[in-house]
Amino acid sequence: MTSPPPPSPPPLGEFLQARRARLQPGDVGLPAGTGLRRTQGLRREELAALAGLSIQYYTRLEQGRENNPGGAVLDGLAAALRLNEEEHAHLYALANHAAERVPAGGGPADREIRPGILALLARVRPWPAYLLTRTSDILAANPEVFALFPGLGEWPPERRNSIRYLFLHPMARGLFEDWERAALSTTAQLRSLLAADPRDPELAALVDELAAGSPEFVGLWQRYDVRRRRSDEETYRHPRLGEITLAFEVLRLEGGQRITMYQPKDPGEAGREVLRALAESAAAHPPRRAG
């Protein structure tokens, strides 16, 4: 008779385990010792000692049997795990959820599309721009978005999601010049959503789908990098437009929505030519309609 799989660790315990596994003794000033280490990364007792905790207490934290760590405990763990400021805040957020000091996230994603947002997406053309939910479902987009991301417009509207496109669309890996960098950044952004609601069913469903379809996603998800989506730039090897580099800005709205707008990195004639080419491609290759 097959034994059932072990229960998944709670979100706080999962974060602690994942970040502990990424540290080696030499990273924190401990001797490597002799012989083969059976533990990936630091042992529980090593991390507990670095954080000033008993091994019993730390084990209860990882297993979810201790749900109310105080600030001094969390700060000690953050220092021991070498967390940056954003990761430190994420640790606090997970602990607050574990202790039920904050309510779970605000329910289903806000999918309302305000008329003013639609007008903005049209007004900024030919800059590609779209409206996303917190889990990156595309609620609305101007035509240049579908020109920039070939194949996205062939998916039915309910399937259009920028993270799903990156990991599961067959054209995405060739489109992004540095796909690995984009995948790492996107997975870290998805991980950061756990701070809002570790039990978010929409997030869980998306993660399950990506894990089933992309081994690369599984490896990146297990790293437990945390990073909110920020303004940046991306280079694309576009099948119709050649190599183009676009900067993008992220504008956050109420309800977890955000607008992402792209513009050429080059503000001169070369950049204007990119925009003209996007507009022409958008006119020639309209997205699939609903229904």
Rank of each mutant, 00 (worst) to 15 (best):
P143C: 13
Q56K: 08
R173V: 04
D75W: 01
E177K: 13
E209I: 13
A49C: 04
Y92S: 04
I55Y: 00
G105L: 06
L194D: 03
H90A: 06
V226L: 01
A18I: 08
L16K: 05
I113W: 07
A277N: 07
Y57S: 00
R258L: 08
G52H: 09
T235H: 07
D197P: 11
W127F: 11
T235R: 13
T235E: 10
V207D: 04
Q56R: 12
A211E: 14
L278F: 03
A140N: 07
A122E: 15
G255W: 12
L132V: 06
S281D: 15
Y224E: 11
H90G: 02
V207T: 12
A196L: 13
A95N: 06
S281L: 15
E243C: 14
D178F: 05
G174E: 08
Q263F: 12
L12I: 12
L30F: 08
E180D: 15
P201R: 12
L94Y: 05
L132P: 02
I138E: 02
P287A: 12
L120P: 08
W221D: 04
S54E: 11
F217L: 07
L36Y: 13
W179T: 03
E62W: 00
A141S: 04
R101K: 14
G13A: 10
Y58R: 10
R258C: 02
G213F: 14
M171H: 05
L42I: 00
V226K: 02
P7A: 14
F15A: 07
D178Y: 05
D27Q: 03
P25H: 11
L36R: 15
A48F: 00
T186W: 00
L241G: 11
A99Y: 00
G64K: 10
N84D: 15
L16Y: 04
R181W: 10
L91M: 02
P10Q: 09
A109E: 10
E154N: 11
E202Q: 13
P286W: 01
R22C: 10
A129G: 10
S185I: 09
E216A: 14
Q263H: 11
M261I: 15
R230C: 07
P286D: 07
N84M: 04
G26Q: 13
L275Q: 05
G268S: 11
R223G: 00
T187R: 05
G105S: 06
S214G: 12
S3T: 15
L12Q: 07
R134H: 08
M171F: 03
A89E: 08
R123N: 14
R43Q: 08
A95I: 03
A119R: 15
R60W: 13
A172M: 05
G116K: 04
L168Y: 03
L77H: 06
A51N: 14
E243S: 15
R288D: 02
P11E: 12
A99P: 13
G71E: 11
Q40Y: 09
F15M: 12
P11T: 11
A129Y: 06
N161T: 04
A89S: 02
F217W: 03
V218F: 06
Q40I: 08
V274P: 01
